[in-house]
Simulated assay, not measured.
Amino acid sequence: MVLGGLLPSTPATNVLLIVVATAFIWLGSGWLEESADHLASYYGLPPIVQGTIIVALGSSFPEFASVVFAALAGVFDMGVGAVVGSAIFNILVIPALSGLATDGDLETSRLVVYKEAQFYMIAVATLVVTFALAVIYIPVADAPPLTGRITRPLAAIPLLLYGLYLFIQWQDVDEYDGEPAADDTGIAREWGLLALGLLVILVAVEQLVGSVEALGSTFGISTFLTGVTIVAAATSLPDLLVSVRSAKNGNSATSLGNVLGSNTFDLLVAIPVGVLIVGSVPVDFAVAVPMMGVLTLATVLLFTLLRTKLSLTRPEAYILLIAYVVFIVWVVAESAGITQLVRG
């Protein structure tokens, strides 16, 4: 049963609920991002920090909520899949559509390429190391090979790295000369809108995770793969909205900063906090790491294209979109048993 037993749990009902929940995630995220953007401007934060922390935290909240609810429901693999799938979507689709939304090329900067991008690569490597430590030191008995248990001490590793990331961004804020707004009219309303957006997202994501889990059970699809595809696409809509809008307004720093900051938050905070809430969770290294490998390849492709003349051209944007289509085809092939690169 869905919606607290008000509707029967049929495939048609679950598909309808996924669509409705996605719409509410988009609505709540719009409120969240609008208020976060206004608050960042009011407190005088630099554009790169607005993109990588304030706006990214707001647009990443759906992924964060999906990990928490998946962990509480006992399907942590779905939450991990949602984060990894969302990260791949963010890396390939969002910069591509942002570039196509502008009149010319999507300009970037050395600050984005050399600081944000490199720190993001460190975040990917840190999460893989955390998974590996779980398999080596806390293997799960009576489970598929290469299954380890992530505990709270292990979850602290990526969280500590995110603390370093916040410290680096704080240094940027400390050195920034921007002045905060003097007029505080409407600030209370912005904080209220932020809280309302968080509440709407929480309710919508809880229903989304439940419906996707039910559909996966009905059709025999693994929770990790449903997370990589359905949940990831639904929770990535806010990131897409923010980045495309920023690119159309000529603010490429916020557009690309949101993508990298959102992914950094998802990998270093969303997954570890899910572990902290439930205490410990099993992770299938054989399933998670191939997907992290795909994420690494997608990241290398994006950074290579961004580094050429420090801009993303329209042909390069289409290359990113083609790469995402190839990824989706591969995921479908894995689900159908045509390919077996993902073990477990």
Rank of each mutant, 00 (worst) to 15 (best):
P8R: 07
P11N: 13
L16V: 13
L16A: 15
I18E: 07
L27F: 15
S29A: 15
W31T: 01
E33V: 15
D37V: 10
H38K: 15
L39S: 11
A40H: 06
L45I: 13
G51R: 06
S60H: 03
S60Y: 01
S60E: 08
F61C: 07
P62W: 02
F64Q: 11
A65D: 03
V68R: 03
V68L: 14
V68M: 13
L72H: 11
A73Q: 15
G74D: 09
G74L: 05
V75F: 04
G81I: 04
G81N: 09
G85S: 10
S86P: 05
A87V: 00
A87L: 02
A87Y: 01
F89N: 01
I91H: 01
L92C: 03
I94K: 05
S98A: 15
G99W: 00
A101S: 15
T102A: 08
D105W: 06
T108F: 02
V112K: 01
A117I: 02
A117C: 02
A117W: 03
A117D: 04
F119V: 14
M121S: 12
I122Y: 12
A125Q: 05
V129A: 14
V129Q: 00
A134M: 08
V135H: 04
I138P: 01
P139I: 11
D142N: 15
P144E: 14
P144V: 12
L146S: 13
G148M: 09
I150D: 01
A155I: 12
L160G: 15
Y162N: 08
Q171M: 12
V173S: 08
V173I: 14
D177L: 11
P180D: 11
A181M: 11
D183C: 07
T185D: 14
I187T: 13
E190R: 10
G192T: 14
L194D: 06
V203M: 12
L208F: 11
G210F: 04
G210N: 12
S211E: 06
E213H: 09
L215G: 07
G220K: 04
T223A: 13
F224H: 02
T229H: 00
T235Y: 05
D239K: 10
L241H: 12
S243I: 04
R245D: 09
A253Y: 04
L256G: 04
V259R: 01
V259H: 02
L260G: 05
F265M: 10
G274T: 12
G274S: 09
G274W: 06
V275D: 07
V275L: 03
V275I: 14
G279E: 08
G279A: 08
P282D: 10
V287P: 00
A288D: 09
M292P: 00
G293L: 13
L295W: 05
L295R: 00
T296S: 11
A298W: 00
L301V: 09
T313Y: 10
R314T: 07
E316S: 14
A317K: 03
L320C: 02
L321A: 09
A323D: 00
V326C: 05
V329K: 03
V329Q: 12
V329C: 07
A336V: 04
R343W: 05
R343Y: 10
